[in-house]
Amino acid sequence: MPTPSANAEALPKTQLSQLVDVTAALAAHAEEHDRSAELPAAGLALVHDAGLLTLTVGTGHGGPGGTLADTVRVLTALGRGDPSVALISAMTLFAHAAQARTGGWPADLYAGVLAESATRPTLINALRVEPDLGTPARGGLPATTARRTADGWELTGHKIFSTGAVGLRWMQVWARTDEDPVRAGAFLVRTDSPGITVERTWDHLGLRASRSDDVTFDRVRVPEGAVLGLDGRDGGDLRAWNALGIAAIYLGVAYAARDWLAGYLRERVPTNLGKPLASLPRFQNEVGAIEAALASAQAFLTATAETGGVTAADLAKTVVTNAAIDAVQRGVALIGNAALSRRNPLERHLRDVLCGRIHTPQDDVVLGSAGRSVLEGTH
């Protein structure tokens, strides 16, 4: 049986040419997954087989210790192929990155995760959003509650927007304790535990195959030590990973849209013109503007990933995501009705890229913080 480190050793061999192959394989089935809105299990298996789901496993655990810059590069490629696969994969990559940097998982539980990861996709996600609270990024405590038992905790509550829910092996469930004073942390729940129900509620504009469904917990048992964050360690340095990883996915969508647009313009020959639309200066200029915007966004994303600063990462998420959205919208405006036909991928790319704005950190928070920093002279 291969060890986790053997699987992770695929990383040094995952050069640009292999990422191109992975992207192409994912793209071949992205439309099918968008139509069915089913979990893209085959795509996730492909990412696993390429050694990418264990990219961020720490070297201390036998992994490659993939950096933030490595992760951004990979997520851009995955987003270019199928952003639903990319988003589900990102959650697992972030979980391993957090463990490598801040620890927290009990050694036996994490060893089990790595053992399973050697042979099959072993997906992890942090479940934080709730029906009444919304996203915790804007403050507040969860309604999901962990109550003390003789040998650990008992978890009851309801989470929404739980990306990849039906395919997860582990859920990091943000909950409050029943103690006085109240504490909050992420309770580690294996998804074959009794009392977990996944309700198929995800019926979204974009990333339809991400299966970000509702999950309810009814007195789910959690071992005593299987909790992250109750000791005050919040893994805050991973905010940059989340911001830049999410931005990378949507930049990948914009690249896919640009590629389709370029192919369409090369192939489309109106009878009254007698030559491809790609030969006209108007189309050349607009595609050039798209290329300039994407190149700038890529440079900002790459540079920020190499430094890893949280403030710059938040700003990069806003700048890169909006550049990606604008690039796709420019393509739509350029060719009109053909862009909005479901038989053309550009329609799907438009729906997918628009989802970039709703991820934390959101634009109003990022821009407000950046503006205050400048006006107060603290930037």
Rank of each mutant, 00 (worst) to 15 (best):
residue 6 A to R: 09
residue 376 E to G: 11
residue 325 I to R: 11
residue 41 A to S: 15
residue 253 V to A: 01
residue 191 T to G: 07
residue 56 T to P: 03
residue 22 V to P: 01
residue 169 R to A: 14
residue 181 P to C: 10
residue 77 A to P: 01
residue 78 L to Q: 06
residue 40 P to T: 04
residue 206 G to A: 06
residue 222 V to N: 06
residue 200 R to I: 00
residue 38 E to I: 00
residue 290 I to Q: 12
residue 192 D to S: 13
residue 330 R to W: 02
residue 45 A to C: 01
residue 30 A to M: 03
residue 231 D to W: 11
residue 76 T to R: 15
residue 173 V to C: 10
residue 148 R to Y: 02
residue 301 L to E: 07
residue 285 N to F: 12
residue 214 D to T: 10
residue 337 N to Q: 14
residue 238 L to G: 00
residue 41 A to F: 04
residue 275 K to S: 09
residue 121 P to W: 09
residue 289 A to K: 13
residue 349 H to I: 00
residue 120 R to K: 15
residue 87 L to Q: 06
residue 192 D to L: 05
residue 337 N to G: 11
residue 102 T to N: 12
residue 166 V to Q: 12
residue 377 G to V: 07
residue 374 V to W: 10
residue 129 V to D: 11
residue 297 A to M: 08
residue 76 T to E: 15
residue 231 D to E: 08
residue 237 D to F: 02
residue 320 V to M: 04
residue 56 T to C: 15
residue 282 R to K: 13
residue 185 G to S: 12
residue 369 S to E: 15
residue 210 S to A: 15
residue 196 I to Q: 06
residue 112 G to P: 00
residue 85 V to Y: 01
residue 109 L to S: 08
residue 217 F to T: 01
residue 93 L to A: 04
residue 26 L to K: 03
residue 21 D to K: 03
residue 281 P to N: 07
residue 1 M to D: 11
residue 211 R to A: 14
residue 131 P to L: 09
residue 261 L to P: 04
residue 255 Y to G: 00
residue 136 P to R: 05
residue 150 A to Y: 01
residue 161 F to Q: 08
residue 167 G to R: 08
residue 159 K to F: 10
residue 234 D to G: 00
residue 325 I to M: 12
residue 233 R to Q: 11
residue 112 G to K: 10
residue 62 G to L: 07
residue 64 P to I: 00
residue 26 L to W: 02
residue 181 P to V: 06
residue 298 Q to C: 01
residue 224 E to L: 15
residue 69 A to I: 03
residue 306 E to I: 00
residue 64 P to M: 08
residue 32 E to T: 13
residue 109 L to M: 14
residue 233 R to G: 03
residue 2 P to Y: 04
residue 257 A to L: 03
residue 268 R to C: 12
residue 139 G to I: 09
residue 6 A to S: 11
residue 100 A to C: 04
residue 356 G to N: 08
residue 263 G to C: 06
residue 322 N to T: 02
residue 35 R to W: 07
residue 106 P to A: 09
residue 101 R to T: 13
residue 144 T to M: 03
residue 4 P to T: 05
residue 185 G to R: 07
residue 79 G to C: 04
residue 30 A to P: 01
residue 166 V to G: 05
residue 72 V to W: 03
residue 91 M to K: 14
residue 120 R to T: 12
residue 130 E to Y: 09
residue 318 T to D: 13
residue 43 G to E: 06
residue 171 M to Q: 15
residue 176 R to K: 15
residue 83 P to A: 02
residue 317 K to F: 14
residue 293 A to D: 14
residue 336 G to S: 07
residue 318 T to F: 15
residue 10 A to C: 10
residue 215 V to W: 04
residue 374 V to S: 08
residue 122 T to S: 09
residue 90 A to F: 13
residue 299 A to T: 12
residue 43 G to W: 06
residue 16 L to V: 12
residue 41 A to M: 10
